[in-house]
């Protein structure tokens, strides 16, 4: 996925542990990851130190970055600094081709044009050096 580097990032930042950190580092290289369990094949996101289905240690898998809108909302009122200036904006739950769901801001179209089922692709926003988070835009 494309990696975008904004001039500055004033919004909240992730504070990942050792299990979680590789996700953000991979995203900063343009790679979107999720977890798959070698024991039971369960796929999960967000990443954890265990498989939520069977308890085994999950492994990383690489996602295509393609998916569709599973559900979403258009935020029209929010008082939090750094978000209120961007209203209205869309936050969506994306169902990836690989079956896991990821959360994120959806940009690149009018909020009113967003529909459940809309095909989207991921892009990465580097929020600090070596750490990126997925955003989404119509594919």
């Amino acid at each position: 996925m494309e990696v975008v580097r904004p001039e500055a990032w004033h919004k909240p930042l992730p504070d990942p542990d050792a299990t979680e950190r590789p996700f953000y580092e991979a995203a900063a290289r343009g790679e979107l990851r999720f977890q798959q369990c070698p024991a039971c094949a369960h796929r999960q996101f967000y990443p954890r130190a265990l498989c939520t289905a069977c308890g085994a240690a999950p492994e990383w898998a690489i996602a295509s970055g393609r998916g569709s809108v599973y559900t979403f909302t258009i935020l029209r009122q929010y008082h939090a600094e750094h978000f209120r200036d961007e209203l209205p904006y869309v936050v969506a739950m994306i169902e990836l081709e690989e079956g896991v769901k990821m959360f994120g801001t959806l940009t690149g179209c009018e909020p009113e044009a967003v529909r459940i089922g809309l095909p989207v692709e991921a892009y990465a926003v580097e929020v600090e050096a070596g750490t990126a988070i997925p955003f989404w835009r119509p594919a």
Partner: peptide
């Protein structure tokens, strides 16, 4: 700085 389960949502402003 947000950690734990909320970390995956907080940067997006929901």
């Amino acid at each position: 700085r947000v950690s734990g389960g909320a970390m995956w949502e907080a940067p997006y402003g929901l």
